[in-house]
Design a protein around this nucleic acid. Structure first.
Lengths: 344, 344
DNA sequence: TTGAAAGCGATACCAT
DNA sequence: ATGGTATCGCTTTCAA
């Protein structure tokens, strides 16, 4: 009860100076005890800790970082496309875990594929003096990235390559992964294969489309649609493709939402067992649908770990040339990609 | 080119003092221009901005907050259960959006339902001087929450109630929502209904179970399993329930992963069209499965917006009693919940 | 080992 | 409207 009273309203406003006074020691000694840096007589240390407890003292990381020689804030920032999307949140989770092992916190924001928001976020995060930045770049705000870099903030691009010297990157083998999946369709007899992908300004979209073209270079292969960004849009476009005189016998999708949109259109037309579908990027429950959706799966957690590892290497003093890590994708056969082309 | 050169290596280490010197004005004037607080002669202001640009000056939010009267960091922190889970990430997204409208950044971390991690996160976030905290409480680290509160950091609990005076909360109508869904099953003739929920220490789990008991109070209603935490565990347990001599004719699930686990077991046994299933919390693709999975849907984005609104009200000076917002759930009929009890 | 004092970069007050 | 200056809470020499 008395304890509660003493602490009530305490905390905010209690400084090391107050603790020092109460413990009858110097300010510097309190700092030493709190940070556990240099040795302090156990007896004194106890007095300090007691005073700190009594006063409800909370170390102020803000002020600490301001004065510290390395000026570290022990914070890294994350610019995602959209946290609410499972790929992004898995990425965030992996990075946060890696950071938290080092006592580093993570700030994050979503660009929504909008370069203006990306620029905003990068600038805000640098103003907050994040120790480093991990960005899923839209590809259209590289100036902001360069600015952050020239300011001295280490930068890692994840998921997508970026046209900037000195930036470490982590990507998956988009082109090879897509080509391998397309090749399976070709081997299963498919000749009219549609490719649905998103905005070509996104690096991954370009790579995946290139992988598709590696296998189906010719126009009659089937309709190629880019710039798809939502489930609804993909669904509508797929519906139209299915209504064409010679509809595709298989679909390749460059992205999660598009895969789902195509599948919706397929189910609506009752064609999910007749027309093949392979999507890039796995999604929950893909295996519970009938038939299961075959995908080119990437491992976002692995991507996140690699990105964190590259960033922390920089923070630990690595000054070498930019490194580019490529994480392999993996084809998961669940049925929808194994539907053969109709005979004839 | 010359521009680039001038900025190369600039930035880090450039202070307002440097800008002031270069612009030939006082330090205070630079501060005024940067913050746009009091008026400055346009001519001078331009000189300052030019000097800042030339030097690659970046405002230091850290130092700023240290000196500012209100000591605001313009940062709020978020303690989630697990960012990688769609409910949490939708919550984070909504909160981040609300925050960003006010120029506020958000730090976040996952407790994984572990009170020790929750305590850790709350303490770290307070040390970083977050202006406020939004927490999905495990229910077993309330001491840490109280500490943060007594330190003066406004606190909002979201998704779950917390046994602490003065904490604003946002929850959904767990009990009523579950009861309403259970009532539908009862009306459809179901008498042996199983309830699968997660750890009873979680507030929502208790509420939902209570809602179920409101409708099926008797033991012979069906097996009641608590403490389920993963898809696999739920699947295994459901499998066992189905193998019993008198298996349930319907399942009610208290949570996402459990719903999916039950559904897997059902599909494995080929019973998804014969045995009813209603889950709490919606999930992507629930409608694409056949039959679609009926759910008691909550709106995490709405929860997030309400939480942000309560927190910002506190930051804007609201000092009244704690407020408790309840966001309604909504039953979505997709088929699996509309399977009637077998005749006889 | 300990304490005094000098800043970290910025804001806010007080003169001018 | 502008400049000087005293802090904000802490870390880090530098002496003692």
């Amino acid at each position: 009860m008395a304890e509660d009273r003493r602490q009530a309203g305490a905390g905010r406003g209690v400084t090391m100076r107050d603790v020092a006074e109460r413990a009858g020691v110097g300010l510097a000694t309190v700092s030493r005890v709190v940070n556990g840096t240099s040795a302090v007589t156990p007896e004194l240390a106890d007095k300090v800790r007691e005073a700190a407890r009594d006063l409800g003292y909370r170390h102020d990381a803000t002020a600490s970082s301001l004065r510290r020689a390395d000026r570290r804030t022990d914070t890294v920032a994350l610019v995602l496309e959209d946290v609410a999307n499972p790929f992004s949140s898995a990425l965030q989770r992996a990075i946060t875990d890696a950071a938290s092992e080092r006592g580093v916190l993570v700030l994050s924001g979503s660009s929504d594929e909008n370069p203006i928001r990306e620029r905003d976020l990068v600038e805000t995060f640098t103003a907050r003096r994040a120790d480093g930045l991990i960005v899923v770049p839209t590809g259209r705000a590289d100036d902001a990235l360069r600015a952050a870099q020239s300011f001295g903030t280490p930068l890692v691009a994840v998921d997508r390559m970026v046209e900037l010297a000195g930036v470490d990157t982590v990507t998956v083998d988009n082109r090879e992964g897509t080509a391998a999946a397309a090749e399976r369709l070709r081997a299963a007899g498919h000749r009219r294969v549609a490719y649905f992908g998103d905005q070509p300004s996104i690096w991954t979209a370009g790579e995946r489309l290139a992988g598709f073209f590696d296998v189906f270079p010719q126009t009659p292969a089937g309709p190629v649609c880019r710039g798809l960004t939502s489930v609804e849009q993909a669904e509508q476009t797929a519906r139209e493709a299915l209504a064409a005189p010679e509809p595709p016998t298989a679909f390749v999708s460059g992205q999660n939402l598009i895969t789902i949109g195509i599948r919706r259109a397929l189910q609506e037309a009752g064609l999910e067992h007749r027309i093949a579908l392979v999507g890039f990027d796995d999604f929950p429950l893909a295996d519970l649908l009938t038939p299961g959706v075959s995908v080119i799966a990437q491992d976002p957690a692995q991507l996140g770990r690699e990105a964190a590892s590259l960033l922390f290497a920089r923070l630990d003093g690595y000054e070498g040339p930019a490194r580019h890590t490529i994480v392999p994708t993996r084809y998961i056969a669940r049925g929808s990609g194994e539907i053969p082309a109709p005979a004839g």
